[in-house]
Amino acid sequence: MTAETIIPGLVGPGTQPENEDGATLDYMEMPRDMVTFHQPLAPEPEDTLGMEEAKALLNQMADDLANYKIDSSALTYSLNSLAPKDLGLINQIMGEGEVSIVCGTRYQAQESVLAGVWRVVEITGKDNQISDNIEVAAYPDSIFNETFKTAAETIELDSTFPEGVRNAPPVLSEIKDKVANYRAGQPCHAINLTLLPQTDEDIAYLAEKLGVGTTIILSRGYGNCRVSSTMTKNVWWVQYFNSQDATILNSIEIVDLPDVVRAAQEDILDSAERLSEIMEVYK
């Protein structure tokens, strides 16, 4: 089994240093396109007659956003009982933002064009929808609470290793130590694999020992970033790709949630202002 089989993109151009000792770095082209905010094309007021429930929900959300603190529990707004036309207005105003999340077979989430405002759908079986909610938060609580629910608390280190594995064992020892001492809210500890001389066998061995987790997050804010949970608690793979889809950064982060997928307080305040501006036309 190769590293590419376990977690796509872990090996290939840009994932390893040019020289065996890692002393010389050949930086690849950085992403050229950045996703920026575009005001959604909201319908004319006369086209929203009969959509009072959706407008009331959006106005309430705008007020709540203005007072929301990023370290608070998520604010949840159920869309389950909305009529199709009301739901259509919600869809049009929310749009699709930079971050998409899949958590196992149960949850799918999409950040809206308003940072910190998430659409979270819970499903069971084959596309059988259980719930459809909007969550206001740095990151959806429902997915955060699910991600490491069955993850291991530590890593079992081996005394012998597969052929070709050279530099993974000390990396695993470092991860084991950091996981044991990590406490929620502490700063991230990052291990930049791009700067280390790692063989394909090293990467495959790391992936096998850490396990493949339940959550995959794609962020398209500046270029492309893929964040994957592992089956070891608070351990994430974080990969950045350039405009040619070559890996420019491949790292392991020990943290409760990588910063790249977390909305900030200023994002929430900006979203409150933008949503208020959008809804002003309907008052």
Rank of each mutant, 00 (worst) to 15 (best):
K176I: 05
N145R: 15
A168R: 01
L157R: 09
P170D: 12
I130Q: 06
D132F: 06
Q129V: 15
I143V: 15
P140W: 05
R119Y: 10
D141W: 10
R119H: 11
I130V: 15
G116Y: 02
T154F: 11
T154C: 10
A115W: 06
Y182G: 07
I175D: 01
T124A: 13
Q108D: 07
D158W: 10
R119I: 09
V117G: 01
K126P: 03
C188H: 03
L157C: 12
K149D: 04
V113R: 08
A137H: 02
V179S: 00
Y182K: 04
A115K: 11
Y107D: 01
S131P: 03
P162Y: 07
E153H: 08
S173H: 10
P187C: 06
Q186D: 07
P140L: 06
K126Q: 11
T150A: 11
A109E: 08
D141S: 15
N145S: 15
P187T: 04
L114P: 00
P187R: 01
E156T: 14
A115E: 09
N181T: 14
S142N: 07
R119L: 11
N133S: 10
G185T: 11
D127P: 03
N133H: 13
E135N: 04
I134K: 02
R183N: 06
Y107P: 02
A109D: 05
T147L: 10
S159P: 04
P170G: 12
N145F: 15
I130M: 08
F148H: 04
P140G: 08
A151T: 02
S131I: 12
V171C: 05
P187I: 03
V120G: 00
K176N: 11
V120Q: 00
V171Y: 01
A137L: 02
V117A: 01
N167P: 05
D132H: 09
I155N: 04
S159Q: 13
K176M: 08
N128H: 13
P140F: 05
V165H: 03
V113S: 04
L172D: 00
E163G: 09
D127A: 15
K178E: 09
L157S: 13
I134E: 02
V121H: 05
G185N: 12
V113M: 10
P140V: 13
V171D: 02
F148Y: 15
G164T: 09
F148T: 02
N145Y: 14
D127S: 14
R119G: 01
A180V: 06
K176S: 14
G116D: 01
N133A: 07
